[in-house]
Nucleic acid binder design. Structure first.
Lengths: 338, 338
DNA sequence: TGGCTCTCTGAAATCGATTGTATTTTAGCC
DNA sequence: GGCTAAAATACAATCGATTTCAGAGAGCCA
């Protein structure tokens, strides 16, 4: 165990007061350059590192932000979902670029606990919350009592907190229009439309049909949570019950990949028999067979946006909600009708 | 911004000394049950949360652990690699189960910085390091000066730090033996054998051949880093140069999936023409087409193991290195010879 | 009732830094 | 050289908790 080396130890070695050491380390102009150099040299030699607990206590800040991933209760989705994980990676990168640490929290219980544990305890200066399923009110309350919160989710107009997300309606429309333009007529929607974001993607699905003056069957929705397994089974059942379809728009890439799988296991080929579009553009999307056409949520951009907005809030500056660039990525899981 | 409520505020309201409040909140037997209840009730009402900076400063601990993901310099691998991300998820889960926070660090620079920033600064009580490529010496040094480190990697016998990982030799042998038992004779190895872990997997590959009295061609190695793109290109090139092979053992699932892809784009079918085994068992492995036969590293178990061992170390107890359960998961990417 | 033990609570030191204020040193100028 | 202003450093309070030690009060026994 490395014996701890404190600032007063460093001060003693440099034969100056501890306050001078503090200023020197923080590059204050109050310290004579010559003295500063000497102190920094010694600090480096003895491997001094400031004690953040003391620093945070005095400065009343933590130089850390928290990312909270509250899993939708009852959903199969786990932290192992690639979308969440990529989001953690992206936020982690953006945070460290800004010199902030990232604390990951996957609350088992109520989100209120996570807020207390991270924000009010002073552990983090701000919070990024991924997903808002059924928590709009709580998020509004949290945001009212402490404004340093940025949320990833879909814009429903009932939020008074800063929101970042893809343009879900646009994304849904892009995906569906693409399928329609390929000549697909019976498009199955995969996703639980009672979830925020997913409802907006379905709204885009409807709009695309209307814009193209095409009819859509409201029964062509498989209300699936985000788990791959339930999607696999759901699609199999849908096929086996005799429903006919030639296109699928899935509310996530994991669902889309599970659907591809289910179709293939029933002897259908993609994209000849059924064209498929996913949503998210997770890393694995381009490695699926066939590579998946999908809506790019731009997770990397989104993570950076959230961190930027959060730091702006922490600094007391305005932080308006934003969309990430939302675009269609065309790969081989879509093809025109024979 | 919620106005901060401190312990002395709480003490004032409860008409007791702050020291009594502290004891009450920490459930000390020194406080009369009646008093304790009253204090807890008020604390709950005003939403008091202990200030961790003050607490950590006084207790000289942080109740947090750090996970460091030093990307191999020069490798294509990014934090978005599913293996790393799943590891973060797994460690995060295990940490929170034990009441610890998890701080994610993806050092851009030298790992020494991360160690300083997290450990010596008192931000974290211990560190989990994922991967040891080219850092054995530094890790040994870190471990010598502060023993609260657990590393994920391959056992080469030159480490004096606590190591957790899959049994890479066994895994490589299981994978290769399986391919040989299916009648495959020319097995391509995908992976950079100059990396730790990968070399051990190749060692297993060699052993399996020896055990089966089969010859192997030392040229059948594609020295790929972990990036999917380079694997895709590498395999294409290998095919186009006229090399003949009927099996692939890839050092990671991402590589295996990229290989499947490359083969399919050259008109080969899996598993009829080529049997493929991956390594890791990431979540997407079962959703690939065909589903991927792979070696399960048991990431979930590994994360829990590392956290357990790290907390043991922090508590001053012994923490011996361990293997996770390493097993072959048979899916459809392997098939016998026609 | 006096003395003693046993509970419980309060006072005060402490963790390691930052920062406002006081004080010393240096520099500039006639 | 002596005076003042400016620059550099030292002093001391402070952040919010934990914990040691001391003391107050209650209960018990003779």
């Amino acid at each position: 165990m490395a014996k701890k080396v404190t600032m007063s130890e460093l001060a003693r070695l440099a034969k100056v007061d501890i306050s001078t050491v503090s200023r020197a380390l923080n590059d204050s102009p109050l310290v004579k350059p010559h003295t500063k150099e000497a102190i920094l040299k010694i600090a480096d030699e003895i491997g001094y590192t400031v004690n953040v607990a003391a620093r945070n206590l005095r400065k009343q800040s933590s130089e850390a932000i928290g990312i909270v991933i509250p899993l939708a209760p009852g959903s199969e989705q786990t932290i192992s979902d690639p979308f969440f994980l990529e989001m953690v990676g992206s936020v982690s990168h953006a945070a460290s670029q800004n010199g902030y640490d990232l604390i990951v929290s996957v609350p088992q219980d109520e989100m209120k606990i996570a807020e207390r544990r991270l924000l009010r305890s002073g552990r983090a200066d701000g919070l990024i919350v991924i997903g808002q399923a059924g928590r709009t009110e709580r998020l509004n309350a949290m945001s009212a009592s402490n404004s340093n919160i940025v949320v990833w989710g879909g814009a429903h107009g009932e939020q008074n907190y800063t929101l970042v997300g893809s343009d879900n309606v646009k994304g849904g429309k892009l995906a569906t229009s693409h399928l329609l333009s390929l000549g697909r007529k019976n498009i199955l929607f995969l996703g639980d439309v009672s979830l925020p974001e997913v409802d907006l993607r379905y709204e885009g699905y409807v709009k695309a049909h209307n814009d193209a003056s095409m009819a859509y069957d409201p029964d062509y929705i498989l209300k699936l949570n985000f788990g791959g397994q339930s999607a696999f089974n759901g699609v199999l059942k849908f096929i086996d019950e005799g429903f006919v379809f030639d296109g699928i728009f899935a509310a996530s890439d994991v669902l889309a990949m599970a659907a591809i799988h289910a179709l293939q296991s029933r002897g259908k080929s993609i994209p000849e028999d059924v064209s498929i579009v996913g949503y998210d553009n997770i890393g694995q999307a381009q490695l699926s067979t066939p590579p998946l056409t999908t809506i790019n949520q731009n997770i990397t951009q989104g993570g950076a946006m959230m961190v930027d907005l959060l730091l702006a809030k922490i600094a007391g500056k305005p932080a308006p909600s934003k969309f990430t660039d939302t675009e269609l990525i065309i790969r081989k899981s879509c093809g025109g009708v024979g």
